[in-house]
Computed example of a mutant assay.
Amino acid sequence: MKDGREKWHERLKVTLWTLIVPPTVWAAHFLFSYLWAAISCAKAGRFATFPWLFVIGTVLALAAIALSGWIAWHQERMAQTPPPHEKGTDIDRLRFLAKSTLLLAGLSFVAVLFTALPVVFLGDCL
């Protein structure tokens, strides 16, 4: 902003730690999905009619990945320098990490959707 106040997402900096958030959320959702399926099949012999816990877990995973991608998108699009970001400066490293985080967020978002698809199409345990 022009009066010196930054928005909250502008204060956040994309680092290697934020780079691993989307695939980590996907991996946690993947583990949660398989544990949910194993427990459902062992106890009831089928999936629940409408698995609220699974839906809530999937929505939370998608929201966390989308938030991570949104922050990375804003960091990558800051109007200080145009692409390509190939120099070794701090801003170029930030932009590279932001672009990488954005791409990983997109891949992880699709991966969570594909992990959730069997629950939609399969009604019972085989």
Rank of each mutant, 00 (worst) to 15 (best):
R5W: 12
E6H: 14
K7R: 15
H9P: 06
H9R: 12
E10G: 08
E10C: 10
R11K: 13
L12N: 08
K13S: 14
V14C: 07
V14T: 11
T15R: 00
T15Q: 04
L16V: 08
W17K: 09
I20Y: 03
V21L: 07
V25C: 08
W26G: 02
W26R: 00
L31K: 01
F32I: 00
F32T: 04
Y34R: 14
L35I: 06
W36E: 06
A37R: 06
A37E: 04
C41G: 06
C41I: 14
G45L: 01
T49S: 10
P51D: 12
L53W: 05
F54M: 11
F54D: 01
V55K: 05
G57T: 03
V59K: 02
A66R: 09
G69T: 02
A72E: 08
W73D: 09
Q75G: 08
Q75R: 15
R77E: 12
A79E: 13
Q80A: 12
P82N: 07
E86K: 06
G88M: 11
I91Y: 13
D92V: 10
R93K: 07
L94R: 03
L94Q: 11
F96Q: 11
F96I: 14
K99S: 09
S100I: 09
L107G: 11
A111N: 01
T115Y: 04
T115Q: 07
L117F: 12
